[in-house]
Structures are given as structure tokens and as C-alpha cells.
Design a protein around this nucleic acid. Structure first.
Length: 323
DNA sequence: CTAGCCCACCGCCAGA
DNA sequence: CATCTGGCGGTGGGCT
């Protein structure tokens, strides 16, 4: 995580906490010794102190950018409007370009998009940033296509996110990509997040969504689904659970999670099955039953849709990778 | 692989 | 007037 000298603490700490919690949850779920994330906070200047221009809260970076050794899997730039003075700009930009070229993915939080844009990494891409700065970003860098609406946008291997806390949503989506939606859900629950706001959700409506969320019946539903994969998770049953009509439930669900109920349930089933395949020696039938697939045949079909691979093959691959 | 069945999804409309 | 809710029926895709 590359942080500018006056980045808000949340921009930096949000993603960091997400990744750290993911590591913890993974261990809790009993997965081997693998540590999926190792986070380094790098400062944009020689000084290591990251001091929020809003609150004055400070975070101590692990090192300066120039001291980062070794390859970087995911580069996240947090904050960004304030670097331009008093540091080695050309060197920093060159470093960003170099790291990004070899990284699996590059991301920005809030105005971090400006730094990526200056480095030329966003040319021709669809991006977003804090709504207050989206117009300026578009004007300063006409080659970009700036969309001020969504919480985060992914274009190729570059992800940009909106205001400060959307960095948390972004990080969560990266965790989901890496470790599956079940782990992502556990992280979200551990941090009592509004469960998995989708990237497409408008920045402007989230405040309202949050106000209502305390009584939103859908908020806890993903967790319940995850923990009851074996039960009847049809639309009618789910709707009854949250005391809504089926029709209305479907509508609200799509608005909230940007997927239809059935697709959502299927993804959780497949992801959980993947985990069980990789980590346990349970039989395929057993796993299919546990995850709520009606039959092994059904699980096979779901896998073919999802990964174009049958469960048995997936397990062989996963086990082979392990040893 | 097929046939029949079921269910999710969505558009439309009416009422709150 | 705008937004939300609930019911109905067609359709297509997945399951048995």
C-alpha cells in the first residue's frame, strides 16, 4: 500500500485491516500454513509518518517507496493529491510504473487515482475516484473515462475506488477474488461491514443505504445463507425468512447485491465446495450434500459453469499445488 | 441424450 | 407525484 504523506488514515488502514482479517479468518477456517497476504505500507516520501490532513491521526509506514524490495502482487495507492511537492516525483512515478507492470493488479483508493493517472497507467480506462474530484480528474487527464457513480470500477487489472471507505469495499472484492466469497463474507462479518456492497452501487446513495441498513432485513442474509447452505435456499424460502413477498424480495436482493438470489446462492455453494475439495478428504457426494447441491450431478454442472472443470479435477489440481 | 417438469427471473400493472 | 410493494403470467434455462 503506497500512501501519500497526508492520506486519511482510513484510506490506508481500511484495506490493510481487510487483508489482515482475511489472513486471520483463513487460519480460523483451518486452512494450512499458507499466508495469502503480506502487507507493506510504503510512504511516498522519505518521511515515514502518514498524517491525515483531516484529523491529524498518524500512521507509521513500514518504509519509503524506494526501499521496497522484491516483487509486489497488488499495488494499492491511497490518497494522492498532496505528493507533488518536495519529493522525487519522476522517480516515484517511474517506480509506480515499474511495480505495476509486474504486479498482478494495481488499485487506487480515493484520489490515489490521480497518481496512477499521472503515471499513465489509467489511459483509456474506465475509472472512478472520490465524487468531489471526479470532474477534475477527467479534466486533467482527458484520456480517462471517469465515472463518478460506482464504489469501484475494475478495468483489466486496474481497479479504482471512490471515496475513503470504498477502499474497504475494494479490498474486500480483491479478497473475494483471491479466496472465494465465503472467506470474504466471514471477513465482512468479523468487521461488521455492510455485507459486500457491490461495485456498481452509487456513491451517492450509500449514505442513505447505510442509514436504512440497521433495519434492512437483507443485511444479515448472506451470512445466514453461508451457514445454512444445506437448507432450502429457493426464492420463496428466503423471502419468507426475511418476511417479504417473493417478488419484492427478488427485486430488493438484486438492488442490494447486484446479483439474483439464485446466482448468489450458487456462487456461495461453489466457493464453499471448492474450499472443502481443497482442504478436506470428504467424498464428492458428501461435499455436494453439505453445500446444498441436490445431487453430485448438480454440483458437477455448477462447476462446469463456474470453472469449466469438474470437482474431481479441481481437487487434484488443488492438492497437487499444495504439495 | 431426451423429454417433461419446475423454478427463477422479469416485465407489467395495480394498490399503498 | 414518486417510490415501494405484491401479484400474475410468460419464458427460458436447469434439473430429474
Amino acid at each position: 500500500v503506497l500512501a501519500t504523506p497526508s492520506a486519511q488514515s482510513l484510506e490506508v488502514a481500511g484495506p490493510v485491516e481487510i487483508f489482515a482479517t482475511a489472513v486471520y479468518k483463513l487460519h480460523e477456517a483451518g486452512r494450512g500454513l499458507s499466508v495469502p497476504y503480506k502487507v507493506t505500507i510504503a510512504s511516498c516520501t522519505k518521511r515515514l509518518e502518514i498524517r491525515s490532513w483531516m484529523s491529524g491521526l498518524t500512521i507509521e509506514a513500514n518504509c519509503s517507496w524506494s526501499a521496497v524490495k522484491g516483487p509486489v502482487d497488488t499495488l494499492i495507492v491511497a490518497g494522492g493529491m498532496d505528493v507533488w511537492t518536495g519529493s522525487d516525483i519522476p522517480g516515484l512515478l517511474a517506480w509506480i510504473r515499474k511495480i505495476s507492470r509486474h504486479a498482478r493488479r494495481t488499485a487506487s483508493v480515493c484520489t490515489g487515482a490521480f497518481m496512477l493517472a499521472e503515471a499513465g497507467l489509467l489511459d483509456g480506462k474506465r475509472v472512478t475516484t472520490h465524487w468531489y474530484f471526479s470532474q477534475k480528474l477527467q479534466q486533467d487527464y482527458p484520456k480517462l473515462s471517469v465515472d463518478p457513480e460506482p464504489l469501484f470500477i475494475r478495468d483489466g487489472n486496474v481497479v479504482t475506488s471512490a471515496g475513503v471507505t470504498s477502499g474497504i469495499d475494494l479490498a474486500l472484492s480483491l479478497v473475494e477474488e483471491d479466496l472465494g466469497s465465503d472467506i470474504a463474507l466471514r471477513v465482512a462479518r468479523a468487521l461488521v461491514l455492510f455485507i459486500r456492497r457491490s461495485g456498481g452501487q452509487s456513491q451517492f446513495s450509500t449514505a442513505l443505504a447505510f442509514q436504512n441498513s440497521s433495519r434492512l432485513p437483507l443485511r444479515e442474509l448472506p451470512i445466514w445463507i453461508l451457514e445454512n447452505l444445506g437448507s432450502d435456499l429457493g426464492v420463496e424460502a428466503l423471502a419468507a425468512r426475511v418476511a417479504m413477498s417473493p417478488r419484492n424480495f427478488s427485486r430488493n436482493f438484486v438492488n442490494e447485491f447486484a446479483t439474483t438470489p439464485a446466482k448468489f446462492v450458487e456462487r456461495l455453494r461453489v466457493d464453499t465446495a471448492k474450499r472443502l475439495l481443497a482442504e478436506s478428504d470428504k467424498s464428492l457426494e458428501e461435499i455436494a450434500f453439505e453445500c446444498g447441491f441436490g445431487s453430485l450431478d448438480t454440483m458437477n454442472r455448477s462447476f462446469l459453469r463456474d470453472t469449466a472443470k469438474l470437482p474431481a479435477k479441481f481437487r487434484r489440481r488443488a492438492k497437487a499445488r499444495e504439495s
